[in-house]
Computed example of a mutant assay.
Amino acid sequence: MNFERLSPRLGFLLGFAACAGLLGIGAYLQFVEELEPCPLCISQRLAILATGVVFLLAGLHNRGRRIYAVAAAAVALVGASISARHVWLQHLPPEEVPECSPGLEYVFQHFPLADTIKLMLTGTGECAKVDWTLLGFSIPAWTLLAFLLLAAWAGLQFVNGGGQPDRE
């Protein structure tokens, strides 16, 4: 595929479609396969949603291509850092895994917002559990790869003029 001929609008909308697909996979794993998401999984889903919103806005707005590309890459890299922490937790020796916390619903109801956000971004013992793998990689490892690919795709949109002059 010749990316130089791909319009930036279509490129951003393809990025949005990828994010929507990732959220669909997450919903399938949760509701069909009955894999309950941990706090870091939920944080990763929120980062995918945020990345998708930036891609969608860029595709609909069709101006400021480079600004949107940088924003999408930045949000995707934040998501990648959350995924990297999750992968790191999954590879800790059992004696170094943090303790499990109360359920997220309980935490939202009884803890201050700052503590809840900290819990969602740092993870707990249940985040270290590997429930599912594909080709030897856990869900957070695949999500890390997806975030890195989304950031790279955003980078391509930064340089992709689609044969048109910049309309910044």
Rank of each mutant, 00 (worst) to 15 (best):
Leu22Ser: 08
Glu34Gln: 12
Ile42Tyr: 03
Met120Lys: 07
Ser43Met: 15
Leu89Cys: 12
Glu126Asp: 15
Thr143Gly: 02
Ser138Gln: 06
Ala18Cys: 05
Arg63Asp: 13
Ala20Lys: 03
Gly79Gln: 10
Leu49Val: 01
Val70Met: 15
Phe16Val: 03
Leu49Asn: 00
His86Gly: 11
Arg85Gly: 07
Pro98Tyr: 01
Pro37Ser: 09
Ser138Phe: 01
Val54Pro: 03
Thr143Pro: 01
Thr51Ile: 10
Ala141Gly: 04
Gly59Asp: 01
Gln109Lys: 15
Ala17Val: 02
His61Glu: 11
Leu40His: 05
Pro93Met: 14
Ala73Ser: 15
Tyr68Asp: 05
Phe111Val: 08
Ala18Arg: 05
Gly52Glu: 01
Glu36Pro: 03
Asp115Asn: 08
Ser43Pro: 09
Val87Gln: 04
Val78Met: 14
Val53Ala: 13
Leu49Trp: 00
Thr124Lys: 01
Ala69Leu: 08
Gly26Lys: 01
Pro98Arg: 03
Gly15Val: 05
Val97Glu: 10
Thr133Trp: 04
Leu57Lys: 08
Glu126Ala: 08
Tyr28Pro: 00
Ala58Trp: 06
Val54Arg: 07
Phe55Gln: 07
Val78Ile: 15
Gln44Ser: 14
Ile117Glu: 05
Trp132Pro: 00
Ala114Asn: 08
Asn62Cys: 09
Pro39Lys: 12
Gly103Asn: 11
Gly136Cys: 01
Glu105Gln: 11
Gln30Asn: 12
Ile139Asn: 02
Ser83Asn: 07
Cys100Lys: 11
Leu13Arg: 07
Leu92Ala: 08
Leu121Gln: 08
Leu22Asp: 01
Arg66Asn: 14
Pro94Ser: 13
Leu144Lys: 09
Pro39Ile: 12
Tyr106Asp: 14
Ile25Ser: 04
Trp88Thr: 14
Phe137Gly: 00
Val78Gln: 06
Val32Ile: 14
Pro140His: 00
Ala84Cys: 03
Pro112Ile: 10
Thr133Gly: 01
Leu121Pro: 04
His91Asn: 15
Gln109Pro: 09
Asp115Gly: 00
Ala128Thr: 02
Thr143Phe: 01
Asp131Ala: 04
Gly136Val: 00
Pro94Asp: 13
Ala18Ile: 11
Leu89Ala: 12
Cys100Ile: 05
Leu119Glu: 09
Thr143Glu: 04
Val78Lys: 09
Leu113Phe: 10
Tyr28Phe: 14
His61Gln: 06
Asn62Lys: 07
Ala27Asn: 10
Cys41Gln: 03
Pro98Leu: 08
Tyr106Asn: 11
Trp142Val: 00
Lys118Val: 02
Gly24Lys: 13
Val130Ser: 05
Thr116Ile: 08
Leu119Pro: 02
